Amino acid sequence: MYQRILVPVDDSDTSRQALLEATRFCCDQHGKTRLVHVIDLAQFTWGGAEFVDVGELQSTLRSAGRKVLDGAAALMQENGIEAETALIEIWGGAISSALIEDAKTWPADIIVMGSHGWTGLDHLLLGSVAEGVVRHAPVPVLIIPIKRKK
């Protein structure tokens, strides 16, 4: 039985579907749940940064990240699950690496996350955080695919 469930969240339909599945999974486990959201603060430090207030943009990223976490925690609470939240800040690099590091540090027993299911050129250009996590995670990973509307 998994006692420590790590759930990466963002502001996408895919993430919401994974969160709902994690809610059902968590209800049966009676363990601890940690919701994490990763922001990349380095994305504004090069290329055009002289035209914007980088500090203000980074503050906006933090606020948006906290809003995502608050919404996810509220959804969990509606389902009777108290979850801790963590906003992870990176300065470049792979989001999947930040999630894997958090899974080790916390330490998680399982990671439950969504996948957009991109293929072909979209996958090549956009990559896959879920794929990166699955390849290098120190614990099992439950991937929830997006339910596409017909």
Rank of each mutant, 00 (worst) to 15 (best):
D53P: 15
L121E: 08
R135A: 12
R16I: 08
W106K: 05
H136D: 15
S59K: 12
K149Q: 15
D28H: 10
Q17G: 03
V52A: 04
T85M: 01
M76S: 03
G127F: 06
Q29C: 04
R16H: 07
R66F: 00
T60P: 00
N79D: 08
V134W: 09
P140Q: 07
R148S: 00
G55S: 02
Q77K: 15
Q17I: 05
I88M: 09
I100K: 08
D10S: 02
H37V: 05
E78P: 09
H123D: 14
I111L: 09
K32A: 13
E21W: 05
L75M: 03
H37C: 06
R34D: 13
G114S: 00
S96K: 13
A72K: 02
I5S: 07
T45N: 07
G117W: 04
D40S: 02
W46G: 13
K32Q: 15
A74S: 01
S96H: 10
G92M: 15
E78W: 09
G132C: 01
I39Y: 03
L99R: 14
M1E: 07
C26R: 00
V52W: 05
I143R: 13
F51L: 12
D28K: 08
M1A: 12
I143K: 06
D53K: 04
K150T: 14
T60F: 00
A98R: 14
T33P: 03
R62P: 01
G127P: 04
L99N: 11
W91V: 14
K147P: 13
D28R: 13
V9H: 02
A94S: 15
G65H: 06
I39D: 11
P140K: 06
D40A: 06
A130C: 00
G114I: 01
Q58T: 10
R4H: 14
I5W: 00
W118I: 09
L126C: 06
Q43Y: 05
T14A: 04
A72C: 02
D40E: 05
M76A: 00
S115L: 09
T14W: 04
G127N: 07
V134R: 12
T45L: 01
A137Q: 10
R62I: 06
E50K: 09
R4K: 14
T33L: 13
G93Y: 11
L41Y: 09
G65M: 04
V139I: 05
P107E: 10
G47S: 12
H123S: 13
F51H: 13
I110F: 12
K149D: 15
K149M: 14
K104V: 15
V112H: 09
I143P: 04
A22C: 02
A103Y: 08
G47V: 10
L61D: 03
L41C: 07
I110R: 08
V9D: 05
F25K: 00
F25H: 01
A22G: 01
A22M: 00
Q58D: 02
K67H: 07
L126F: 10
G114W: 09
G48Y: 08
